[in-house]
């Protein structure tokens, strides 16, 4: 009986097994092949494949930029005098956004630069407006960026005016939720939020957004809503900083899936009591 069944259905069974095995392989490699395929297929569609030149829209911007340059140079000098290492600002790779997340709950983008351009897992990503996320997967020509607006992303942040420390977590919109470490806050709407010096991924002082509202009563800690500077849903180009990649263990697939644990990836949170 089994023999008859096999005679009748062997080709279909084998085919299903092959499809299942391929799907499993894709899952274990985090779809690296599909990402590369997507890159190849969409290549001819990317006509304007040059990063937009810095646009100096008006005189005020120009003035502020010049002052910023001045201050940066001064800061650099002071750092050198203090014996601190100069900030590694060079080596940014401009990357076009080529794709987005394949579901409605997570916030990723695919960018058209990868391992060939020196991008590594853990490289921070910025765009006009400030921090936008970091790299969680790299294939030869593409990389996946976990956006700062993803609920699983959390980035160390600080309110510039009051120096209040905290971290920002995404809400899958263009607003972040900032949680603070202290209870009595002097933070008010309009305050600027930047990356903090305790962030392991980002250099301190990179702009993130502006406080929209503060909730002192939130439990267990006070929170604030932070509106992102970068138009995160409409970005077409991003800057990746491969030189600043943080070493990451057991990451989202190094291409061969060897590092990743069977059901997804290691937990980032080490609960503290």
């Amino acid at each position: 009986m089994l023999y008859h069944w096999w005679n009748q259905y062997w080709s279909k069974t084998v085919l299903v097994a092959v499809f299942l095995a391929s799907a499993w392989f894709l899952r274990q490699t985090n779809g690296a092949l599909l990402q590369e395929l997507f890159y190849g297929v969409t290549q001819p569609l990317r006509l304007n494949a040059t990063p937009p030149a810095a646009q100096l829209s008006d005189a005020r911007t120009l003035e502020l930029q010049e002052r910023l340059l001045e201050l940066q140079a001064e800061n650099q000098q002071l750092r050198t005098t203090l014996g601190e290492s100069a900030e590694a600002g060079a080596g940014a790779v401009p990357a076009p956004v080529i794709g987005r997340a394949a579901n409605q709950w997570w916030q990723y983008v695919l960018i058209g630069r990868g391992a060939k351009d020196g991008i590594q897992v853990g490289s921070p990503v910025q765009a006009a407006g400030g921090v936008v996320g970091y790299i969680i997967q790299v294939t030869p020509n593409t990389s996946k960026v976990l956006l700062i607006s993803d609920p699983r992303s959390s980035v160390g942040a600080m309110v510039t005016r009051t120096r209040t420390q905290g971290y920002v977590r995404g809400k899958a919109t263009d607003e972040l939720e900032m949680s603070f470490f202290e209870k009595d806050l002097a933070v008010t709407p309009g305050d600027v939020v930047v990356t903090s010096s305790s962030s392991t991924l980002f250099a301190p002082g990179l702009p993130i957004g502006v406080v929209q509202s503060v909730n002192q009563q939130a439990s267990p800690v006070p929170t604030a809503l932070v509106k992102l500077n970068a138009p995160i849903g409409k970005l077409e180009w991003m800057m990746v900083f491969p030189a600043k990649a943080v070493k990451i263990e057991g990451g989202l697939g190094e291409g061969d899936g060897a590092g990743s644990q069977a059901d997804g990836l290691p937990n980032l949170i080490e609960p503290r009591s």
Partner: peptide, 29 residues
Amino acid sequence: YSLPIVTGAGEFSLGDSLLDADLSQGSDL
């Protein structure tokens, strides 16, 4: 969640963590 572990920064084990010992011990929360 399924995000990479960051190592090489002392106590840190988060993608980008603030769970620096100094900070969390200084907090009464």
